[in-house]
Design a protein around this nucleic acid. Sequence first.
RNA 1: GCGCCCGUAGCUCAGAUGGAUAGAGCAACAGCCUUCUAAGCUGUGGGCCGCAGGUUCGAGUCCUGCCGGGCGUACCA
Length: 545
Amino acid sequence: MLNSFVESELQAALINAGITFADPIPFEKPRQSGHGHLSTTVCMSLAKAQKVNPRTLAESVVAALKLDSRFVSDVQIAGPGFINFTFTPLAFQSLLADMVSAGSALGKSTIGVGKKVNVEYVSANPTGPLHAGHGRNCAIGDSVANLYASCGYEVTREYYFNNAGNQMNLLAESISVRYKQIENPELPFPENGYKGDYIIQIAQELNSQKALVGKSQEEALQIGRQAGEDWCFTSIKKTLQSLRISHDVFFNEDTLYSTGVVSKTVEQLRNAGLAYEKDGATWFALTKLGGQQDKVIIKSTGEPTYRLPDIAYHRNKLERGFDVVVDVFGSDHIATIPDVLSGVQALGLDTSKVRVIIHQMVTFFENGEIVKFSKRSGNTYTLDDLIEEVGVDVVRFFFIMRTAGTHLEFDLNLAKEEGDKNPVFYLQYAHARISSVVAKAFDKGLSVTETADLSVLEHEKELLLIDLLSRVKHTVERACESLEPHTLAEYLREVAAAYHVFYHDCRILDSGEELEKARLLLAEITRRVLNNGLAILGVSAPQKM
RNA sequence: GCGCCCGUAGCUCAGAUGGAUAGAGCAACAGCCUUCUAAGCUGUGGGCCGCAGGUUCGAGUCCUGCCGGGCGUACCA
């Protein structure tokens, strides 16, 4: 980035002025072109502590500033105390040269090297196919995992497979009734049972295999339950596969019981005086930990509530030695997080390693109308349906392009539009355009030459593009650290826009022997940035469109 | 009631750690292809950044209180 030409010099100048400034120096890109290429507000933010006028401080800093005039052509103090820098084309060319020599490491960071991160996402209950709304969790989680990988972390992608608990009983019950209804259609279906057609399908399969013949009710439920779990697991995995998502670990909830982690956890909470019996249930004394109210962790029926296995599961993840443990949850799970973290902390584990992404819900719109989906009504709009309708690239991009904290309006009409209105195509088109030029250059015997003379790149649009491209690593790091993949999507849109402008104003092929090579290389670097970025978002980068 | 999230252009949304005249896409209007992909580019119009205080040299951004919407607030997950 352009910062690199002035950052250490500014530090030195500040020290020279008797000021030690531990934080990184704040830089920003001025909105107005008259304010140079880069700006710093460091004098304004330091002025108060130093009890000096910010402009005066800026003047003494600038006076002490020893900059390389090959790279920096102008330094101005402006407004209340901004220092604005203008750079020479050589500075930009040098940034581009760095990106060329970075090779396959372009846009990759090393901030996570040697660290292990676990990203848990999707984690939908195996009680049915993934529905369209699940797509947001899938896309966010997978992109975050990709971001961590791009930053050098060793990433474990994990799916918490909730195959124990009440909802599985309900699944078994639903299948069992559908099975019996084959003989006796009048039999009432459980009011809160899973009403989707897939339940009928599973029941019919069991029937055709005669799997329940001669079985007791209890055995039948068990078989139905397993059949349901298997069906859902297969269905979910298939959907994830078409979304280009592959988990390293499917963590089965029931192993928390079979390995005794759950009972051990209850025991520890009891010993710590944080669990007690009341009304036949076991309660978690959250009020002792600053919570609003105590919560049940084992029901009077003897079954645990979701909190207990969740605590045990987080304990398990932390004990596996991850430096960072990321959870991706929908906002409907928001209440559980503080409870679980309190529990984990009470067990003596370091919860500062846990980072939670909470995304808001998704509303699907079509023809200006809200489309309502109810998993249990049978009128299920599945993620498969959505993928089939709009394509994987659109699904992944639409779910990632907004900040997780806001409600997402998924415009199905826009998503289905295969043209300029659709924001995904804007990015892909830029990539395809570059690929096309590179291919065309190849046809005329010209290939991308990494040793091209970059000194011919002086056009304003070329410099703007280079400036933007040089921010790729920083953007990836920031998106990763803030767990906000949408900032990468936004960045890529800017890159595509800057390329389109460059492409429009600066002819590449036949622009002159040296210029042609240099511009072709610039285009290729842009292509790599787009390609890598799209890969992080799980979107394909087509050669042709 | 309480907790968390969100209120920015007609619509959908961006707005780095507080910075200079608040941005993009869509929609509307007007231009640009005998030349590398017009799925592109350029221009015009469009705003009490929910409201009211506060902190600050400076607030869309931080604090408080309202108003409006969402999600929670289970011996469901």
